[in-house]
Structure formats: C-alpha cells, structure tokens
C-alpha cells in the first residue's frame, strides 16, 4: 500500500536528459486551498445578473463523460438520434475541468468513489451531481456489499436522484429537466453546500477511504 507520507513527500525525479527534478507533490500536483462559499449563495435574493447567469448555466449543461457503473450504458442513447440530448443544451465533455454535471451512474465501489471525489473537486463551480439508479440512493442490490457505498449524499452533495435499476434514458432526460429547473430557480448550490459542510463530507469520505493519500482538497 502506498502510504500517505511516501506519496506526498518531496522527492527527486530523474529528468529526460539526466538532470534531476525536485518534485513537491503537494505544491506541484495539488492545490490545497479550502473551498469557499460563493457570493451568490450568501445573497438573500438573486440579482438580475445572477438570474441571467443561472439561465445560461441551466441551458448549457456539460456532463463529465465518466461512467462508474452500469448506468453509463444508459447515457449513451442520449447521444443517439432517438433521444438526442444535445437539443436541450446538454453536451458531454471529456475532462472534469470543463464539466458542470457529474453523473454518478450506478454503484460506487471504494476505488471508484476515490476517483469520483477527485473528479468532482476538479470541476469548476457551480457544479452539480446527479445520482442514477437505486445504487446511489440506498445501495440497491449491493446494499450488503462490503466495499460498495450505500448513500451517495454522504460523500458528495447530490442535486438530483433518478430512481430505477437502471433508469431508462427517458427518465434521465426527465431528471435533467428537473435539474435545469432547479438551476434556473437558483437552487443549484451543490458546490456551496459542499464548501459549507466540508468537514462533515471529508470525515465521511475518510471514514471509508482509510488509506487517504491526497490532500484534503485536491483541485
């Protein structure tokens, strides 16, 4: 097992031309600043500019194309001629830096949970999480598994759950419409809730990911 100290300690890496490069993983690979609550979240009423921004955010949802479970199969039909989610302003991006919506498609084992957390933290806020299928709601058919989580909302702030095992593409579209409505109403504050209850989320994550070898906030 890679221990925490080994992975994050300073080390000297041989370069291509025989030179030596000093690597400080915490400074070079990660940004360890704690997330902050946005100004929009603190406002009692959204201003007109906020409303306009929210409208733009709701009409241009970029999904991180990452499939953690069987639900990834149900996402593909959304790109095909039959359902074609592009016409509703929904697009897929290959990198978390450019995505706004993290679709957790199905069960999360501990290994995938670690990756999902890292991907979520790398996304620029405002960012949203959608949980697909009963696996993310209460564990689904893996409710008694020794390495599959039961409730996603203890580890990431979930905006919308879509029930089913697995939900069909139609219900995914329905869930996306609901998400758009929430964002338009100014309720898409997942990132701010994550920042507000950051310590609680981190404690839950670290409770099950016992060999935590990243800084606490790894964007």
């Amino acid at each position: 097992m890679r221990s925490n100290d080994d992975f994050l300690s300073k080390k000297i890496v041989p370069g291509v031309e025989g030179d030596e490069i000093e690597v400080d993983p915490i400074r070079d690979y990660y940004c360890d600043a704690v997330p902050q609550v946005s100004r929009e979240y603190k406002r009692a009423y959204p201003s007109i500019i906020d409303r306009f921004k929210n409208w733009a955010r709701s009409e241009s949802i970029w999904i991180l194309a990452y499939g953690s479970g069987c639900g990834a199969i149900e996402m593909r039909p959304l790109m095909t001629p039959k359902y074609d989610a592009y016409q509703y302003g929904i697009q897929w991006r290959p990198t978390p830096r450019q995505a706004n919506l993290l679709m957790v498609s199905g069960y999360l084992s501990l290994k995938t949970l670690r990756i999902v957390i890292r991907a979520y933290e790398q996304m620029p806020s405002p960012k949203y999480v959608m949980g697909l299928g009963s696996c993310t709601i209460n564990g689904g058919m893996y409710y008694d598994s020794y390495n599959t989580i039961n409730r996603l909302d203890y580890y990431l702030p979930v905006d919308v759950y879509v029930a089913g095992c697995m939900p069909r593409p139609e219900s995914l579209l329905d869930g996306l419409e609901l998400l758009k409505k929430l964002i338009r109403e100014g309720k898409g504050h997942g990132a701010d809730i994550y920042a507000e209850k950051f310590e609680w989320y981190k404690a839950n994550q670290k409770k099950i990911l016992k060999s935590w070898n990243m800084p606490d906030y790894s964007w």
Binding site: A56, R57, S60, G89, P124, S125
Partner: peptide
C-alpha cells in the same frame, strides 16, 4: 444559438484554477 449560451456560461463560472 447554443454557442452564445455556452460562452455566457463559461464566462460566468467561478472558482478558476
């Protein structure tokens, strides 16, 4: 007109690294 919306959305994202 989707490129316009994408542009507005991208400029309105916070939390830049």
């Amino acid at each position: 007109y989707q490129p316009y919306i994408d542009l507005v959305k991208n400029y309105s994202l916070t939390n830049l690294v």
